[in-house]
Amino acid sequence: MTRASGGAAVFLRGTARENAEVLGVPRWIVAVAAVGALFIVLPIVGMTARVDWANFGALVTSPSAIAALLLSLRTATASTALCLLLGVPMAVVLARSRFRGQRFVRAFVLLPLVLPPVVGGIALLSTFGRRGLLGQTFEVLGIQIAFSTTAVALAQAFVALPFLVLSVEATLRASGARYEAVAATLGAAPNTVFWRVTLPLVVPGLVSGAVLAFARALGEFGATLTFAGSLEGVTRTLPLEIYLQRETDPDAAVALALVLVVVAVVVMVATHRPRGLS
């Protein structure tokens, strides 16, 4: 084990021991949790150890790398906004209403969680491609979605949307409907109840879901490649750039992979803070 991984293991054991003393968690659970944490941390440590630090700056500031990173950030932001627009109403309907076939509707909403991303890309291409279900109509109108930057955002939103729906729905179910019931009893209209009561209740879940959706969109690969292709500056996101560089320049691929990890960690740490932590 390297010095970095050994230090990480000591830190995790020390932190876990302190928390266990406060919460009364059995030691065997702490040990298994530490193994699980190392399972996540050690591959990142191993990748970091392979980075060519002497040429790191040149590897991550090439024109293709910068273009791919900026495109990833731009499309991930757009797809997260689309997830918020569609996901919040979906979560409210699933959490606050009862209708026939609801279990099947929920299963289809969460289907992208278990589908291989490439299958999602094929489904999107079959719908929005030039010969797709809706793509033929768009083609007549002079609108081409497949293999465009719009296709990247749609592919990312397709795989990221369930994360937002799950987070918001869980928050709604945990909070209960008593406040909304009181507001309705006092004469508030459904729109007023939603904007003044329901939406403020789901803010924590909304933030968590948006962060998860953004992170998932940032790392999307399979659906993007299948539905949008890999055109530099147009559809080649950072994960696609890393994949291509892996074959021609492994050092650049490792350096760019570390950049993607750092960006994802910064986003998660800056915007996702569990209650009770400072």
Rank of each mutant, 00 (worst) to 15 (best):
A4I: 04
R13L: 13
G14T: 06
G14K: 01
A16S: 14
N19P: 00
V25L: 10
V25R: 06
R27K: 09
I29H: 07
V30I: 15
A31G: 04
A34W: 12
G36D: 01
A37C: 12
L38P: 02
P43I: 14
I44H: 03
V45R: 04
G46S: 05
G46C: 02
G46L: 02
G46D: 03
R50L: 13
A54C: 07
F56W: 13
A58M: 14
A68M: 08
A68D: 03
T75R: 01
T75P: 14
S79K: 07
L85Y: 02
L85F: 08
V88D: 05
M90Q: 05
L94D: 08
R98G: 08
F99D: 00
R103D: 06
R103A: 15
R103W: 09
R103Y: 07
F108E: 00
V109T: 09
L113G: 09
L113Q: 03
V114P: 02
L115C: 04
G120F: 06
G120C: 12
G120A: 05
I122C: 02
S126Q: 10
R131Q: 15
R131G: 14
R131M: 03
I143V: 10
S148P: 13
A151G: 12
A157H: 07
A160P: 13
L161N: 00
L161K: 03
F163K: 02
L166S: 10
S167M: 10
V168A: 07
V168M: 07
A170W: 02
A174I: 04
S175W: 11
S175G: 15
G176F: 06
R178E: 11
Y179H: 14
A184H: 12
L186A: 13
G187M: 13
A188Y: 04
A188E: 09
A188V: 00
A188D: 05
P190N: 14
V193D: 13
T198V: 03
P200S: 15
P200N: 14
V203S: 04
V203M: 12
L206K: 03
V207D: 00
G209A: 05
V211H: 04
F214M: 07
A215L: 14
A215R: 02
R216A: 06
R216M: 04
G219D: 01
F221N: 10
A223E: 12
L225C: 10
S230F: 00
E232W: 03
G233R: 00
G233H: 07
V234N: 09
R236T: 13
T237A: 05
P239L: 06
P239M: 06
E241Y: 11
L244R: 09
E247L: 11
E247G: 15
E247T: 11
T248Q: 09
D251P: 08
A252L: 03
A253C: 04
A255E: 10
L258C: 10
V265K: 03
V265I: 15
V266H: 06
V267P: 07
S278P: 15
S278I: 14
